[in-house]
């Protein structure tokens, strides 16, 4: 029974890792579509919404089944609870990707102005954090998530910087308000995705060590 359980738990963990990667790709592709005004790519991202929802339900159900059938304890239980939280975070990140992709079409008729400079950089920072937390979940090596606190500070600083930059544009030219507001929302979604990466890192740390940490 124990071998069967551990085989199933390993499979669940592997598929959860793939789900987080899928959500990460949705976010990455949506930012690319936004930067390059690629409507076809944006539509592709939006169409992935159903798949991430289906993955959420399927993986959550399997997690509940493992709890009900095997009553896991200690590290096994921590893997299960961490997996559940990873699934929720991945779904949120995927939906932020979908939300950003949806904005691409709204922006096409808006007067053009320079994209907020820090958005590609901010997206890059957040995506790297997600990559690192995926790796930590997969390998149980916590090295890559050690500096998440300072990296999250960087992401927060970028969000505030974009917010201020957009306000300036909008005050100078009210015609940019729609585009400026959407850009603020994109930055906000990226900042929230960074927060989800931090939450995932906290959970992975607990899964591996049994000790709680708070990434502020």
């Amino acid at each position: 029974m124990s071998e069967k359980f551990h085989r199933e738990l390993k499979g669940l963990k592997q598929e959860t890792t793939e789900m987080v990667r899928f959500a990460r790709e949705m976010l990455s592709e949506s930012v690319n579509a936004l930067i390059h005004q690629d409507f076809a790519k944006a539509r592709q991202v939006v169409s992935k919404k159903k798949h991430i929802k289906d993955l959420t339900i399927t993986l959550e159900d399997r997690t509940y089944q493992l709890i009900a059938l095997y009553q896991p304890m200690a590290k096994d239980m921590r893997v299960i609870t961490c997996t559940l939280k990873m699934i929720s975070a991945a779904e949120r990140i995927g939906r932020y990707g979908k939300d950003i992709a949806n904005m691409v079409k709204h922006l096409q008729d808006q007067p053009d102005f320079t994209q907020p400079v820090p958005i590609p950089h901010m997206a890059d920072q957040v995506l790297k954090m997600i990559d690192n937390v995926i790796s930590a979940f997969e390998t149980e090596n916590l090295e890559g998530i050690k500096d998440f606190s300072s990296r999250d500070d960087t992401v927060d600083a970028l969000w505030h910087s974009i917010f201020r930059e957009m306000l300036t544009f909008m005050m100078e030219n009210p015609k940019t308000i729609t585009r400026g507001t959407y850009s603020i929302m994109v930055a906000r979604y990226l900042e929230r995705s960074g927060d989800h990466a931090c939450k995932m890192a906290e959970n992975v740390h607990y899964m591996v060590t049994g000790e709680r940490i708070e990434i502020k």
Binding site: M1, S2, F5, H6, M73, A74, K75, D76, M77, G210
Partner: peptide, 17 residues
């Protein structure tokens, strides 16, 4: 003991290894 055992032997036993 059941959430975060300190000894590997305990961990391995209660997780059925």
């Amino acid at each position: 003991i059941f959430e975060n055992p300190q000894e590997d032997l305990t961990e391995n036993y209660i997780t059925g290894r």
